[in-house]
Amino acid sequence: MAAGSIELINVTKEYATGRSHKKCALDNITLTINQGEFVGLVGMNGSGKSTLARLINGLILPTAGKVFVNGIDTADRKSIIEIRRHVGMVFQNPDNQIVSPIVEEDVAFGPENLGCYADEVKERIDWALQATGMDELRHHAPYLLSGGQKQKVAIAAALSMRPDYLILDEPTSMLDPGGKYDLIENLKMLNEKYGITVMLISHHMEDVVHADRLIVLDQGQIYLEGTPREVFSSENFFSAGFKPPGIVQLVSNLRKRGHMIDENIITVQQMVEYICRL
């Protein structure tokens, strides 16, 4: 239970569906996320991804097991504000998480709830908007922005609480490719420059190729865990019905045909560099 990490110990979460039926969303999961990591979490619909995200900041409590954030138990309702201050959340639909029709005011919502004073709030807004590259749009109305920009406002709103961890529950699923790319680049920057731990949940493999560690959830259990390279090349990955990103498929198909291409290539960028070196 060291500080500076999120720990899930034997976590099980069941939902009641109907009178006597129970659906097991997460089944005995043990997982540690260390400060500074970029973790990708992938899985099919209904694999328990969102449940896992909501368990971490105490929006829901586990049926069995414990969740610790920096050593604080999420079941301890007195510390819930402390936990949520450390864990910023961004959800799937950007429209549904914006509170105010002015970007600046929306970003201020978190710090104001924490009881920060005006100067402090302003400082936090400035920082959060600058870190997401949204400072030019600070007086805009969010509903006039593009999906990607809205989602960045949501990230800024989470950042304004100065969290250690940022958990994003399928933030890219409603964005166009350009917006998606921008968002992922922004997250990489936040992780590298400010040392914010990022946990990115997605069902697009392309989104998580940059992660330090990839966790694959299947039917409420951790199915695979490792670097993206390891996960994509694993036999089990294919047999569970997952598809690696296009580039990884291309590399493996080329290798099957006898072209000895570096098998560590997982992004278009790497592929381009490799080809240019030939």
Partner: peptide
């Protein structure tokens, strides 16, 4: 969704 988002931002 809004309730979850507001709660996550320390709204009590």
């Amino acid at each position: 969704d809004l309730a979850a988002a507001m709660e996550s931002r320390c709204y009590t």
